[in-house]
Structures are given as structure tokens and as C-alpha cells.
């Protein structure tokens, strides 16, 4: 049994009659000790789907799913109190912007100890010792003196380490890291990713690593899930996705990587942007930007189908040579 099992998760905002699907029937699962990479451009629903797993989507957002289970327990039907006992204990989350993730009015130790107090209790002395351990673990230099620091006294990298310490305080079995390095200096990004992977490895915790950066997940993740405009486009083992993308979007993302752009004059990019609330196409959501799109793509929306051991949402999954299958040439628009 998978640790986290998400089946047809849908998150809608806006009015009931004209809803906006920020997440549209997304399914995935994460096993114990596994690293799942979720990739997609801005606005593809990566954050919203993780927040739904955490139970942090607020009214008027609506979360539905065929099933949403953690360790066999149904997260959707359990009482809010019971769910909170899992959130922050068994599932931790790290957010995009460390500088705004810490409460400016409380010290570092107060914020970490609070998580410990709620889920594990124990004496104040024990909690303080554990906090010191955690700060050591996440590589904070001179942790003793940082304990009583306030957030505004910390750099971005330091803050993110504190946020990580907070998220792993209760030894979660699943950690969701939502673009943990986007807001940080390039030099610090690698350190933070290394730290996360080390923590994951040491404790056999499962990790969902959300990022824009396909190169990053290629090294770190066991499996990859590519999202676009709220939909799952492709998922499968990391190395095989890299060797042979099956979805045109994955292919385009890979081609945009600097290391794959050799021989081209400049970096290849995908023209256009992810459609938002008001400009979602009627057919395949990628159709306006897809180089293989044809009339059918414009008119109809493809479902997710299994293809060569992957889940792919495309009428014409790519073959090993990177060419669409089942399409006659000259058909594209």
C-alpha cells in the first residue's frame, strides 16, 4: 500500500456554476521513502494540489477526490481534529518563500517548539533540546544563539533551514517541499536540496519535491509527475522520462534545459504561457502551444492513458524517437 494515495483530486475556485479548476482530476501515489518530483510551469496547480493534501484549501475553494488516503486512512472523511493530528506530524510541508514563512513576532525556538508541543508534548526542557538537535541537523551554524533569534534577523537561506527544521520536527513520514529554493540565491539552492535529500535518506521519509526545474528533479527524484494547467500530463520513473519523454510538453521542457540546448544558438523555450482562469482552450490544454497539435487536439480534450509504462495525457504519445504516434504527417495545424 502506498503511503499517500491521491485519486482524481480536483480543486475548484470561483462560483458553482462557472468554476475554475486549479487542479483537475489528478491522481498519484507516493511510497514510503520515495522521492516524487512534481514539475510544471507557474500556474500549473502544483501548490494547490499539495495544499489540498495538507487540508489547507479554504472556503470558497472546493476539494473533491475519489480517494485521498494517507497510510490507509481516508483524509477526506476524518474529523478536522484527527486530520490536524496528521498534518504537521506525519506530513510536513515547506513553502516557497522562507522570508515570509516565519511569524515575525516569535523567536525561532518558540516556532519550532510549538510544533513539538502540539504533537508530542513532553517537557519544555525536552522540547528545547530537541529543537537544538534539529537546528544542528539542518546545518544552522551556532544553533544555540539562533534559538532566540527573531525571523528578521535571519537570511533567506537560514530561514529556509529553520522552516525545514520546523517541518521535520515530528519526524514526518512525508515531506512536501513546494519550490523550496525558488526564492533563494543560486549558491544556496544546491545546499538546501542536498539537505532535503540527506534528511530524506537518513530517515527514510517520503519526499514530494515540487519545482520548475526539471534538471533538479532528474537527479533527485525516483518518479516524476509533469503537470500543466491543473492536469497531469505525464508521470513515470525519472530516468525513463529523461531518456524518452512520451508527452510533447515533457519533450519541450527537456529541450528547454540548457544542457540539451547545445548546438542551438540560444536556449529553446516554449512559446506562450500556461492558460489561466479565463483562457483555457476547449480541447487539449496544450493545443495552442503544442507543435504537434491538430484539429482533433483543438476540438477534444484527451484523457490520461497508459503508454509504455507511463501515464500520458495526449492523443499522440511520442515514440522512442520523439515522434508522435498515430498521427499522419501534414495533419498538424
Amino acid at each position: 500500500m502506498a503511503l499517500l494515495e491521491v485519486k482524481n483530486l480536483t480543486v475548484e475556485f470561483g462560483s458553482e456554476d462557472r468554476p475554475f479548476r486549479a487542479v483537475d482530476n489528478v491522481s498519484y501515489s507516493v511510497d514510503r521513502g520515495e522521492v516524487l518530483g512534481i514539475v510544471g510551469e507557474s500556474g500549473s496547480g502544483k501548490s494547490v494540489s499539495s495544499l489540498a493534501v495538507m487540508g489547507l484549501i479554504d472556503f470558497p475553494g472546493r476539494v473533491t477526490a475519489d480517494s485521498l488516503t494517507f497510510d490507509g486512512q481516508d483524509l477526506l472523511t476524518m474529523s478536522p481534529g484527527k486530520r490536524r493530528a496528521i498534518t504537521g506530524k506525519d506530513i510536513g510541508m515547506i513553502f516557497q518563500d522562507p522570508m515570509s514563512a516565519l511569524n515575525p513576532c516569535f523567536t525561532v525556538e518558540a516556532q519550532i517548539m510549538e510544533a513539538l508541543k502540539v504533537h508530542e508534548g513532553g517537557s519544555k526542557k525536552e522540547r528545547r533540546e530537541r529543537t537544538l538537535d534539529l537546528l544542528n541537523q539542518v546545518g544552522i551554524p551556532d544553533p544555540k544563539s539562533r534559538m532566540t533569534a527573531y525571523p528578521h534577523q535571519l537570511s533567506g537561506g537560514m530561514s529556509q533551514r529553520i522552516v525545514i527544521a520546523m517541518a521535520i520536527a515530528c519526524n514526518p513520514r512525508l515531506l512536501i517541499a513546494d519550490e523550496p529554493t525558488t526564492a533563494l540565491d543560486v549558491t544556496i539552492q544546491a545546499q538546501i536540496i542536498d539537505l532535503l535529500l540527506k534528511l530524506q535518506d537518513d530517515s527514510d521519509m517520503a519526499l514530494i519535491l515540487i519545482t520548475h526545474d526539471l534538471a533538479l528533479v532528474s537527479e533527485a527524484a525516483d518518479r516524476i509527475q509533469v503537470m500543466y494547467a491543473g492536469q497531469l500530463f505525464e508521470s513515470g520513473p525519472a530516468d525513463s522520462i529523461f531518456a524518452a519523454p512520451r508527452h510533447p510538453y515533457t519533450q519541450a521542457l527537456l529541450e528547454a534545459l540548457p544542457e540539451r540546448s547545445e548546438g542551438h544558438d540560444r536556449l529553446r523555450t516554449i512559446p506562450g504561457v500556461v492558460p489561466g482562469q479565463y483562457d483555457r482552450p476547449a480541447g487539449c490544454l496544450l493545443a495552442p502551444r503544442c507543435r504537434y497539435a491538430n484539429d482533433r487536439c483543438v476540438a477534444e480534450r484527451p484523457d490520461v492513458g497508459a503508454y509504455n509504462g507511463r501515464d500520458v495525457r495526449c492523443f499522440y504519445p511520442l515514440d522512442d524517437r520523439g515522434q508522435p504516434t498515430g498521427q499522419t504527417t501534414g495533419e498538424t495545424v
Partner: peptide
Amino acid sequence: EEYIRVARAKGLA
């Protein structure tokens, strides 16, 4: 604010 979301992610009431 983001830190409110973080506080809720800690599982606080």
C-alpha cells in the same frame, strides 16, 4: 500571510 498558512501546516487548532 504565508506564516499563517505555515502555522496551520503545523497542525495547530
